[in-house]
């Protein structure tokens, strides 16, 4: 399967579609960005660049928080998809989060997420058209290869952290999630 169907244990009625595309052209990314800003309904996805998505666990933490906030009516962002982007960020500013974590024309690898009732096959077909490519499998090994470690360290303020190179992804995940949890406090 080239996309993931995520079911959060506390929200079994809210399935989440997650997929990863690599080598997407800068033009396509620019188009996606423009259409997102225009709030084009065809582009109603959460697009993330892969620079700062450290692991699936890191991503799923944001999914969970976002769906929870959506259910409780406590979202800070306007839409659930933007909320997902925001909850990956340790900085208490939505525009900043969108800029850093959202679709980046300079990063050819992009994660696409949709929280929806629509059948995922349809969602995937639609996405393939927009992105103009086939999805690849999304897992921790792949993500590890795509992250930009210096950027991650910078944004999560980990330059003075004690990092064990052997378990880097694990540690970065833990520290990043901690930073997200404490955002604004």
């Amino acid at each position: 399967m080239t996309y993931q169907e995520v079911k959060l244990p506390q929200f079994p009625e809210t399935p989440v579609f997650v997929s990863l595309f690599t080598g997407v052209s800068e033009d396509t990314l620019n188009t996606i960005k423009t259409e997102l800003v225009a709030a084009n309904k065809d582009y109603d996805f959460c697009f993330l660049n892969t620079n700062h998505v450290i692991s699936l666990e890191h991503l799923y933490h944001s999914l969970y928080k976002s769906v929870l906030n959506h259910k409780n009516g406590t979202m800070r962002a306007k839409t659930l998809h933007t909320e997902i982007i925001f909850n990956l960020s340790p900085i208490n500013n939505i525009m900043d989060a969108l800029r850093r974590f959202g679709v980046d024309p300079e990063c050819p690898d992009v994660i696409a997420i949709k929280v929806t009732d629509e059948p995922f096959e349809e969602v995937y077909k639609h996405l393939r058209k927009i992105v103009g490519a086939e999805a690849v499998e999304i897992n921790d090994r792949v993500l590890e290869g795509l992250i930009n470690v210096p950027k991650v360290k910078k944004i999560y303020k980990l330059n003075d952290a004690k990092l064990d190179e052997q378990h880097l992804q694990q540690l970065l995940t833990r520290l990043a999630i901690g930073a997200c949890i404490l955002r604004g406090n």
Binding site: K65, D160, A161, L175, G178, I181
Partner: peptide, 18 residues
Amino acid sequence: KFMAKLTKLGIKAPSVIL
């Protein structure tokens, strides 16, 4: 906050999940 700082400093403490 305390636990997150400990983890950052490399002092063994439980990691926060949520």
